[in-house]
Design a protein around this nucleic acid. Structure first.
Lengths: 243, 243
DNA sequence: CACACCACTTGAACATGTTCAACTAGCAGG
DNA sequence: CCTGCTAGTTGAACATGTTCAAGTGGTGTG
């Protein structure tokens, strides 16, 4: 498991751009982990809203204020969950990508793996999603704070594309990873709302959408579609400006 | 302005399916309106999070508990906002659709009108969106409670398609309104996250996406694309099953 | 070894959404 | 006009996320 590590796992060197973190000693790191793990366990057992900060503190054997020393808010505790699943998804994806060269099964495998990882937390993830949807929230997938996690996620889809034997328009190839990630966000959105048993509708969505994407990507080299493709790429370019 | 009325405007007859509401006398209705209007005004002036229930009650000259007699929670106050903008958008859309027969400008006009209606509430809408994103929330655009509002919104896009002179595949024509509504939800999502001045990136997105959709819809009648189109329609069908 | 600094810890206090038992008042029936 | 019913109203009490001033203890330095 190389390449992606959760930001909280080890006290990384302070990066130039990032806001200065206080130095942390061994004891502090231990307490931080204790609080985080206790919180995630309680979230899983009782749900997010039903878990009070007092309960977390009590269960972890610390004072309430101590939790706030390490985490800015209750929502920030979710970031741990976020990072952890990201890492597991990455590992599962590498497993799959190592043994498959065609675009469609590569993409399909990675998407299903992503759902697999999150499946045990479906009910909890819905609440999580609510807080993530707030644009100003640091947990938003589009926020600056989650930028590293986002980049890591996009990197998975870059692997999906680059490692495949599919022939496609070079311009499209450059944009495709980010587009696939966007699609993945859409799948997650669908999944969060999916109340069917075992979220099988989401599985069907993936199984149906992947061949479609595969076909569209192939068609992208067609002469009739070139103008449309250029138009799509131009739109992306235009919209992306002054972020 | 026919067809769409806000649910809260007049004390409608108790519908068979709906949960039994307490009978409400004139005085009660008046108080309810007073609280709702006061709340929406304060939301606009100070923002949602910054407006406390105590402030609403005080400003309206009632006790805190009284607000909870009429509204189950603070979030439920938002529904009024929701309904109101829906109605205004509908009216604006009818204005535009009356004078335009081509698909692209019809769609473009309706989308821009939707943004126009919501523009004054951009910062507030972000918070609103957060609560709407919770799948279990009655405010979610996909929830059963907001089903009437959703149907009304889709109806706008049905008008956009049906009233246009565009020639398109009959199967696609049937599905297009709902797809356009889904796209509209996407635009809203983009808009909520759009921090550019005046949300001009959203405007650009609309201006860029509309001709693209127009082109794709035209291309849908092309022979090479028929299989792809059928595939898309089949996917929609599959995913929609056991809702 | 003593001292000072600072990471770390505490728990009471605060702010705010929500609940609830008690009260009020206006209308219907006698 | 009295009486009772119930929609309507009240505000204190409660639950919970968050803050903060006051410690505490370990670590590096003279």
């Amino acid at each position: 498991m190389t390449g992606v590590t959760t930001a909280a796992a080890e006290p990384a060197e302070p990066q130039p751009g990032a806001p200065a973190e206080k130095p942390r000693r061994a004891r502090g790191e231990q307490t931080r982990q204790l609080i985080l793990e206790t919180a995630l366990r309680l979230f899983r057992e009782r749900g997010y809203a039903e878990t009070t900060m007092r309960a977390i503190a009590k269960e972890a054997g610390v004072a309430v204020g101590n939790a706030y020393y390490y985490f800015d808010s209750k929502e920030h505790l979710i970031q741990g969950f976020y990072d952890r699943n990201q890492t597991i998804h990455r590992a599962a994806a590498e497993q799959i990508l190592a043994g498959e060269k065609d675009l469609a099964p590569r993409l399909r495998g990675v998407l299903h793996a992503g759902i697999d990882v999150n499946a045990p937390y479906h009910s909890f993830a819905a609440t999580f999603f609510k807080t993530a949807a707030e644009p100003s929230s640091p947990l938003s997938p589009f926020s600056r704070e989650s930028s590293p996690a986002r980049e890591a996620a996009i990197a998975i889809f870059r692997d999906v594309v680059d490692g495949s034997t599919a022939k496609l328009d070079p311009e499209l190839r450059k944009e495709l990873p980010e587009l696939l990630w966007l699609g993945w966000m859409g799948v997650i959105l669908f999944w969060v709302y999916d109340k069917s048993p075992g979220q099988r509708r989401t599985r069907r969505l993936i199984d149906g959408a992947v061949p479609l994407i595969d076909r569209l990507v192939s068609l992208s080299r067609l002469r009739v579609l070139r103008p449309a493709l250029r138009q799509v790429l131009a739109l992306i370019e235009t919209v992306r400006k002054d972020d």
